[in-house]
């Protein structure tokens, strides 16, 4: 399997580390107050992940290469990368 790095082009999967689903980190409200960010939002961000049979937006890290983190859409049924990667 080869992965499209936005910096290096198609490279062997062994050069990459998988970074999980591309989820947005909830912004922290300052001053920091645990009650300010609802538990549910944070819970979703930390623990809940969709497990689609189909397109999946996810992060990869080109660890043995340019060290770029990037998001890309992969079809989990075929491992085909569907979109151009974005940094």
């Amino acid at each position: 399997m080869r992965i499209p790095c936005p910096c290096c082009g198609l490279r062997a999967m062994a050069e990459f580390t998988y970074g999980g689903a591309d989820v947005t980190r909830p912004a922290a409200a300052l001053p920091l107050d645990p009650s300010a960010a609802p538990d549910a939002d944070w819970n979703d961000y930390v623990y809940r992940r969709d497990n689609p049979a189909g397109p999946h937006r996810e992060l990869w890290f080109h660890a043995a290469g340019c060290r770029r983190w990037f998001a890309v859409t992969r079809d989990t049924r075929t491992n085909a990368f569907l979109s151009e990667a974005v940094a």
Binding site: T17, G19, R25, L59, F61, A63, R67, R68, W69, A87
Partner: peptide, 23 residues
């Protein structure tokens, strides 16, 4: 060592995109 490097790069590039840091 490798894991923390990836963690720092992720923080720089994804969570805090725009920081002027070279790792």
């Amino acid at each position: 060592a490798e894991r923390i490097l990836a963690h720092l790069e992720r923080a720089r590039q994804v969570d805090l995109a725009g920081l002027d840091v070279t790792i």
